[in-house]
Design a protein around this nucleic acid. Structure first.
Lengths: 120, 120
DNA sequence: AAGATACGTAACTAATTAGTAACATAAGAG
DNA sequence: CTCTTATGTTACTAATTAGTTACGTATCTT
């Protein structure tokens, strides 16, 4: 599905791009419409963000004459979310109190380990 | 909980940092242990990543004498995942085919709209 | 106490990225 | 056909960031 998980994560790192995805969540938007939502940016800035989202597979752009209509593709997003959920599922049901308990136990164990290598 | 959602997203954008979180998923780790997992990086490089994770609230560091034990804090992670799930919940159950249908309908509607502003 | 280990901070470098300026093409409207 | 609108690409700039170097402190081991 997604072209590159890393590209998806990087795309989501920027707040403007997350906002763009939010816009598209409610339906496809023409590029100009998206540009209008960010008056603090030039259209090139916004388009650059769209490029990043497109590269990550999160946005698809359809050409209609001189218009470009951008729509959301949730598949890559869904994929990373699901991967993170499955990875950390054991934690999800627990509070941070449990993490704290583990930290206490592990600390004791760590202290008895001999160290071999020196710092780089 | 999390100090700043943006900081969390930014922290997750880097693959090394995601790997560090994966390590900590299995239990707290001493800084040197984490450094050892990334022989391609200097310890300062790794520590810088840990700093970013700590700033984002994803990692907690406990001092034990000269040792630093780092443990995972899933709360900020959980928070952003849940926010994204709730936002896109309407999409999650559907395939990309449905998104495609919406795109077709919206395009027709978009074309009838008059445009007022000129490009920036 | 001496030497080893673990970690810290500041400065620096190279690469990346967010954003803009300059110039351009193509489609739509009248 | 002319003018307007929508969008594209390249080059540039400033800021941010990934990573290293240089220098240092604190704790632990013998």
């Amino acid at each position: 599905m997604s072209r590159d998980q890393d590209a998806v994560w990087k795309a989501l790192a920027d707040p403007t791009r997350r906002e763009i995805l939010d816009l598209l969540k409610d339906g496809p938007r023409q590029t100009t419409e998206i540009v209008d939502q960010f008056p603090q940016l030039s259209r090139f800035g916004v388009m650059k963000h769209l490029d990043v989202l497109r590269e990550a597979g999160l946005v698809r752009t359809r050409t209609k004459g001189r218009l470009r209509v951008n729509s959301l593709n949730v598949a890559p997003l869904r994929e990373i979310v699901e991967r993170w959920i499955s990875k950390y599922e054991g934690f999800w049901a627990n509070t941070m109190l449990r993490v704290k308990d583990l930290a206490e136990e592990e600390v004791k164990e760590v202290q008895t380990k001999p160290k071999r290598k020196k710092a780089k």
